[in-house]
Design a protein around this nucleic acid. Structure first.
Lengths: 203, 203
DNA sequence: CGCATCGCTGAACGTCGTTCAATAAACGAT
DNA sequence: ATCGTTTATTGAACGACGTTCAGCGATGCG
């Protein structure tokens, strides 16, 4: 009785086709340009069919966000190999910015569009393991190590981690929103920022 | 022959009514919720009438951006009275962040929506006096003074000013996009940031 | 073969920004 | 006062959007 399985497989395949089409559209034109009818055209199905696989457009956005977050994690993962906490903190900033600049549409969807696309990663739900929170905890832990080894003056590690995150996010988001306003190269601004921050937060 | 003048006045009044309605809607619900039909309802005219005063919705957004920028300048103006350049630089950051937190929808329209709403303030036009550029030059000048008096190590002042601006923007924009993700109060993050930056950029 | 289930869609609803011919009012000239 | 013209305003429409749902045909089961 492989019929049920075949149907399930075909169903999953169509769902993946929808996601693939949506991914491509978002990558090329951004999430605002993602249209149910455009997806339908791409997969050669009626728009109504999409609603048999996703609750609505927002649900597709949420799924793409989850994937985007995995993508971001892939950028950050190699950084954890760096032993020196201060250098690791700087490397986190660089890797994060690099992800944003290399994946502008995805970054925008995840961090600059609406809170509803982040809240799946961060809460405010109660008991789920929020991968967003876990990733942020990695930054917090690095800051804690910086404090422990005397590279950073003792302060609330969460506050410091949020300061680092927010400021790097600022460079990326400003560049993504208005590409020609920042005169200096993003790399250089990020470098200035991470160096100044680790210097300025030292005891 | 006051007839022409009266007509001109009435025309200007209706234009101002449109802007007033648009302002209120953006202030209450954000620019995404700004609808031509909603404006038309508010001013008790047909939607088509609005197009006799503005080219399209985007033109209204641009005008609101210009006003928003004036508003931001009003926050920054008192700061110029501060004599110490380093303290003035910190005060710029605080005032900028306060503006963003107190005028979230306007801030979002101006700096987080689309480059087309900033480019009127910053270019890429050629010979106009871009008020956005002038405001940014104020930050650059402050940085220059910081360098001159030895508070900041000699580097490209534009790079340093952009670093400061982008990082503060990051705190504001992150908080506006996802209000409950940052655990620490925005004031505290901004304070940590401006202090760490001026410390870290010192010679 | 008949019946039930499933995948799928055409057509519709209400929304949006925008356009344009048509209407009515106000005006200048005679 | 009347005519012709300019001006202000709009109703109705177009195409696109997200979303819903009755119904269609094919598939599977007894």
């Amino acid at each position: 009785m492989g019929i049920t399985e075949r149907k399930e497989r075909q169903r999953a395949e169509l769902r993946e086709q929808i996601l693939a089409a949506a991914r491509r559209i978002v990558f090329d034109e951004g999430f605002e340009a993602l249209t149910m009818r455009k997806i339908a055209d791409a997969i050669e199905y009626s728009p109504a069919t999409i609603y048999l696989h996703f609750e609505n457009r927002e649900a597709i956005g949420r799924q793409l966000c989850a994937e985007t977050f995995e993508h971001l994690m892939a950028y950050l993962a190699p950084v954890s190999a760096i032993a020196d906490p201060a250098e690791r903190l700087r490397a986190i900033g660089r890797a994060y910015a690099r992800f944003g600049m290399e994946n502008p549409k995805e970054y925008r969807l995840l961090f600059m569009t609406d809170e509803k696309y982040m809240e799946a990663l961060f809460g405010p739900a109660q008991h789920e393991d929020h991968e967003g929170q876990r990733a942020f905890d990695f930054v917090v832990e690095t800051v804690r190590e910086c404090v422990a080894c005397g590279a950073v003056a003792a302060q609330d590690p969460v506050l410091l981690a949020e300061t680092v995150w927010a400021s790097i996010h600022g460079v990326v988001s400003l560049e993504l929103t208005c590409p020609h306003v920042l005169d200096s190269p993003v790399d250089q601004i990020v470098e200035t920022l991470v160096v100044a921050l680790t210097r300025g937060l030292a005891p």
